[in-house]
Design a binder for these strands. Structure first.
Lengths: 365, 365
DNA sequence: TTGTATGCGTTATCAT
DNA sequence: ATGATAACGCATACAA
């Protein structure tokens, strides 16, 4: 035992496990010693069990159990150049839509031993880029990211480091990226068409902020597409854009009803919360729904079918999109050719909050 | 240049970066070479910038930028025995309460360069244990976990590996674990007291499954505490336990109203969704709220104050709980003495869905 | 201030 | 089937 001041440089792998025993964390070497085999064998016993004789395998497992050994993921990642980590970036967890997306992705990855890193961009492209950098440092093997309105460097980095990724939630056929989700533009176009078919000609729109949000922009485009297809247009004063939530829905309807000029006979909302706000305000203003005014939302939250009048809206299976994205990435990791992405349908849920446009032109007063 | 079949064992650290250049991922050594310094200096330039001369620092940063170098977290973790990873385990993301918890925790950790691993137990203790094992393998430096109804091995493992943790969301003074959250028992006791003070004597309860859920159990205890304090008790047939959501709320009210025996004058629900279901069904059954029946929820979701009648409920700032938990753990990581935990208050939001008990004893029919 | 040398815990290659 | 041993990418005593 060295009593000199300078600790004698010990032979590399000699006394170290003894020293480490104090830390309470066993390492592979400890297991190997206890089982009376080499570290290589221990490693194989866990990673390629059939390459080791049953007797030894058993002995190793006992030793590992006795020492309460847990593999060190960092060491494993370094040696194998596989991290078994995936990443996902969403705008925010404060929206059930994205929470459910993560939930679906996470469940699939977890079943395959892949742990998920979660990043929130807070709708800020710069933060999204930062998060991707963090993920790359962490050695993610695959990524999902909501939307494509991100700095080009973001996708460049993913490409350079050869990390397979999918843009999730929204799908766009012309997108340069693989997408798994639904077509926001087409969805809102079809919703608008549905109302046009009911005789509506004057529309208002209550939307979340479109800035840095390709989904919202696509939705607006879809609405304009459908309107234009019938020679209609959205009046500037009929587009209300503001923070998501019931409060803004209420404010918007009040403003729409007080403003001079033609009143809309139908209001399209960016999500159900906004629509709930509109409906609530309509009740207070004594506006008959859908007699005087039709209101549609998006997402089909549980509440939508339970309120009175029940809300016409569209449903997207976000949990499923999350699952599909993970499965898609797993296939690529397993060496499959990259599939081109996948389009999921948004389903219209026609309910009592929409109806035929008023027979008389109620847009004048 | 070796033309023999056996590749000459190259001097350990010599030609490797050349070989790796093909992979497209630069390593510290490449940066060092380009900057004309040693790897140690590069490491310092990023981790202890003031320990390196400004000129060299600049040169190193340029080199790193030019090579597009990103530090490898696995290598860093291995060398420094710090992973800069924290973990959080929640029952499910499909509940906004937990999503918001994660959101708060994540934002604090992210600001300190700590990445968050997310695990969902799906209300299953076995899965929670598995998730913790995964986190430990990943080398998490700290953890938050919702609730304390977990296998003892779970907390033992955390303790053995010296990973600081907090039980979040629920707080219990007698808990052996550090907790940050609110006292479910006290909260429901006070809610019950509030209704007792309004003259209610016969209560019904509509709750989520109590199995493996200490929060729900505490809530039931709280209700029973308050009732017992006034010589009251909860009739077995007045306790409805089932899956969270409006549908079960509706079914429960129908059952309660059809069953023989005394009818409750007040219903306490485990969350706002259940309460919404009860309210909705009450409307269809023609039950006057709060004239005939008072209904209370829990969580205070945005919708609660917007429906008619507005829902009496309790609010807990889950995002803040998430933040506080992360801050608490950061303090411990920074060497502070482990604080004893922290109790957050659940605030009563009295609204129109509750009122004085009917003057006549309407519990008979 | 900078460089040298070694270790972190695991996997993988190559012998045996 | 098993063992030696060299990576993996970085951090850090220690020396200079």
């Amino acid at each position: 035992m060295p009593s000199s001041t300078k600790p004698t440089p010990p032979s590399p792998r000699a006394a170290q496990s003894r020293a480490r025993r104090g830390t309470g964390r066993a390492v592979l070497d400890d297991v190997a010693r206890l089982a009376g085999v080499s570290t290589a064998t221990v490693s194989r016993a866990f990673n390629e069990p059939d390459k080791v004789s049953p007797a030894v395998r058993e002995r190793v497992q006992q030793a590992a159990l006795a020492l309460d050994w847990l593999p060190n993921a960092a060491g494993r990642a370094l040696a194998s150049t596989r991290s078994h980590i995936a990443g996902t970036i969403i705008p925010t967890l404060d929206d059930q839509v994205f929470a459910s997306l993560v939930s679906g992705t996470q469940s699939v990855f977890a079943a395959r031993g892949i742990t998920l890193f979660l990043g929130c961009s807070n709708y800020d492209p710069a933060q999204a880029l930062t998060q991707v950098r963090v993920m790359l440092e962490r050695g993610v093997e695959a990524m999902t990211i909501v939307g494509e309105a991100h700095p080009p460097e973001l996708f460049e980095a993913l490409t350079r480091y050869r990390v397979p990724y999918v843009v999730v939630y929204s799908y766009r056929a012309e997108s340069p990226h693989p997408c798994i989700g639904f077509d926001n533009r087409a969805a809102f176009a079809s919703l608008t068409d549905y109302l046009i078919a009911q005789g509506h000609r004057t529309f208002a729109v209550v939307m979340q902020p479109a800035r840095d949000n390709d989904r919202v922009q696509a939705r607006l485009d879809g609405i304009r597409d459908a309107l234009a297809g019938h020679g209609l247009a959205l009046l500037p004063q009929h587009l209300h854009e503001g923070e998501s939530g019931m409060a803004f829905g209420r404010r918007s309807l009040r403003a729409l009803w007080q403003a001079p000029g033609p009143r809309p006979s139908a209001i399209l909302c960016g999500n159900d919360q906004l629509a709930f706000g509109v409906l609530r305000e309509a009740a207070e203003l004594g506006i008959d729904i859908p007699g005087q005014l039709s209101v549609a939302g998006f997402d089909d939250v549980a509440m939508a079918r339970e309120i009175t009048p029940a809300l016409t809206t569209m449903r997207v299976d976000t949990h499923e999109i999350g699952r599909l994205s993970a499965l898609h990435l797993l296939e690529i990791l397993d060496g499959a050719a990259a599939a081109p992405g996948r389009r999921v349908e948004a389903r219209l849920c026609p309910r009592a909050s929409t109806g035929p446009a008023p027979a008389m032109d109620s847009t004048r007063r």
